[in-house]
């Protein structure tokens, strides 16, 4: 694991500005071109191109056998992917919403996570499960959750949480090339966000390398997904108030680049973790614990969390936003923390 933040996997590539969705679509297309064993299945991903349009054009290019529309059958989508991996293919499957990992829980947490282990390491399961995740605006309690911590808790699954178009593409390509099962949490609220993405077929972001999204000296904020942008916005508001915030995006939660976080905390002496998922037993708790295990004597203040509420998410878009951290809340918490 490196402590040096990696921004891109390539050098000298030209950056273009494209959307997060487009970046994912490119990664899928490029990897399917690169390796014939890569194929996809999921609900509405073929003819429609995905309910969020992520797989648009792929069935046309790769045909209905490699981009397959399934019935509403998450246990088959994930369990079938596990079985297909055993037969030497690389399935990249989509659950229409990350929330549906609960409908395929046995397949994800038992089959994907444990099959290799239970059978003495005889098999590899190079499966990517794409999981449109997070609050998007009125999708309701069963279509809006951030479940990455649950995935973190079961050994055997790698977990990616891209926050930018560049990382969405680079991490997805890394996920597809990874021999282990990867749960790929795309944030639905970021699908329309644009950003620079290197123009390269080899733009691969290695797992386990955090990105320092903003350098600062007074407070380290760890955030993922949609919360990265909010943390950055908060940092800009806090700067004139004399609080110079460093924002770190771990990019993958399994493996977790705790080294970069610890190194930052050793400089700033303060840590705040921001996550959209519910407060209790979220990944913030894990990061807080690991940091105090590693860097307790660097801390000027307790590790702080700014998190989603311990409630289901209401369907009303305004109420829903009130349930996840806002830029204002991050600012308020940082200011309160500064009093310590």
């Amino acid at each position: 694991m490196t402590t040096t933040p990696v921004t891109t996997g390539t050098t000298g590539a030209t950056d273009r500005v494209i959307g997060y969705s487009r970046a994912i679509n490119e990664a899928l297309a490029e990897e399917m071109r690169r390796d014939e064993r890569v194929w996809m299945m999921g609900q509405d991903i073929g003819r429609l191109g995905g309910v969020f349009g992520l797989t648009r054009g792929l069935q046309e290019e790769f045909g209905p056998m490699r981009v397959r529309d399934t019935a509403i059958n998450e246990t088959f989508i994930v369990g079938g992917a596990a079985g297909a991996a055993l037969a030497g293919t690389i399935p990249v499957v989509e659950l229409q919403f990350a929330d549906f990992l609960f409908t395929a829980a046995d397949e994800i947490f038992h089959k994907l996570a444990k099959w290799r282990y239970m059978h003495g390491g005889q098999f590899t399961l190079p499966v990517v499960v794409r999981l449109p995740s997070g609050v998007v605006g009125g999708a309701g309690a069963e279509h809006s959750q951030s479940l990455e911590t649950i995935a973190m808790h079961v050994p055997g699954l790698k977990v990616a949480v891209p926050a930018t178009p560049s990382d969405a593409k680079g991490l997805l390509k890394a996920a597809i090339r990874d021999p282990d099962p990867v749960l790929f949490f795309e944030h639905k609220g970021l699908y329309r966000v644009k950003g620079p993405v290197p123009e390269s077929d080899e733009h691969v972001v290695p797992f386990g390398s955090a990105r320092v999204a903003r350098a600062g000296n007074d407070l380290t904020v760890v955030a993922t997904g949609l919360m990265v942008d909010r943390a950055l916005a908060a940092a800009e508001q806090l700067a004139p108030q004399g609080i110079d915030v460093e924002v770190i995006d771990p990019r993958t939660l399994v493996p977790l680049d705790i080294d970069t976080i610890v190194a930052s905390v050793e400089r700033t002496h303060r840590l705040m973790v921001v996550h959209e998922a519910s407060r209790t037993a979220g990944f913030g708790a894990e990061i807080a614990t690991q940091v105090q295990e590693r860097a307790f004597f660097s801390l000027d203040a307790p590790v702080w969390r700014v998190c989603g509420t311990d409630t289901p998410l209401p369907q009303d878009p305004e109420l829903e936003q009130a349930c996840i951290p806002s830029t204002d809340e991050i600012v308020a918490a940082a200011r309160a923390l500064a009093a310590i």
């Binding site: 308020a332 009093a339 310590i340």
Partner: peptide, 28 residues
């Protein structure tokens, strides 16, 4: 269930400094 009040939480925490009955110092 209820919203998390960062300011109140910090105040509660700081109040424990005076109650500690010993020198309280940040770990650092």
């Amino acid at each position: 269930p209820g919203p998390f009040d960062h300011t109140a939480a910090v105040e509660r925490l700081l109040a424990t400094v005076a109650r500690a009955g010993r020198p309280v110092a940040a770990p650092s």
